[in-house]
Design a protein around this nucleic acid. Structure first.
Lengths: 128, 128
DNA sequence: CCATGTGTACTATATCGAATAGTACACACA
DNA sequence: TGTGTGTACTATTCGATATAGTACACATGG
């Protein structure tokens, strides 16, 4: 389920956070689903339990998951709403990126094709 | 001319690279323009000369600048072409970002507005 | 010629974040 | 009661970043 790249410049715990959030967004993880335990995931990924714990703590802090001592960690009810709001704040990031591409003489049509592709990808996914 | 954020997670030398490349793209720096010397820029920014040198080495490696021992560093003839090609390779990055935003139920129209804004920003700049 | 400014190379050191290692405690459940 | 769970510590290792200092070769202008 998870794929971690040890060689990446992005820290392992951030990769974990991003992947879990992605799984929530695409619906693989739903509200109240249990996510793997700290220790089992550490064994699966050959990663130190503390690193998993660090990712889970941050996801808890963001309200994406909640943890029940002795039972495990679960996806929260509000996870999707929180993530949607989170992503919306990235619109300015998109505008910066597009501006850079525009400066590099990439045509507006090319970028709009790019957007259409992304939306087709989403719709294709929903039909599964 | 340069603004460095010491507190940023992005390393100083990468900030320098990004800013010089940006200045080339928007036309503030043109072919064969001299860029500040390692030592003077180090004084201006209160940064260690080695850090500037690291950025310049990388820009040289990328073909954005060329250096003449004893004289200084200059923007290369091919800088703009290289950067344009470089940015084009970021189209996949754009598609990934748009896909994430699409999953967060941000409408296609909103994203197209975003693109239009970026292009307006570019055109507005060219009229100066 | 010579002082100054330039790029370049090198070693050493300090600092910080990420990751590992190990231990410990409280809780839930079968 | 044993096992699995989250959580909280401390100590340590490791790598990238940045600093500090020195040195050399070159170009330019007085």
């Amino acid at each position: 389920m998870f794929s971690i790249d040890i060689m990446s410049r992005q820290p392992v715990y951030e990769q974990l956070i991003a992947q879990i959030e992605h799984f929530v967004l695409i619906g693989i993880l739903k509200s109240n689903d249990k996510i793997p335990s700290v220790r089992s995931l550490a064994v699966d990924l050959s990663i130190n339990p503390n690193t998993i714990q660090k990712a889970y703590s941050e996801l808890d802090r963001r309200g994406i998951i909640y943890s029940v001592p002795g039972r495990g960690c679960f996806v929260s009810e509000e996870a999707n709403n929180i993530l949607s709001q989170f992503k919306r704040e990235k619109l300015s990031e998109l505008e910066d990126l597009v501006f850079e591409l525009a400066l590099a003489n990439i045509s507006k049509e090319e970028l709009i094709d790019c957007i259409n592709n992304a939306y087709k990808k989403k719709e294709g996914m929903e039909n599964d």
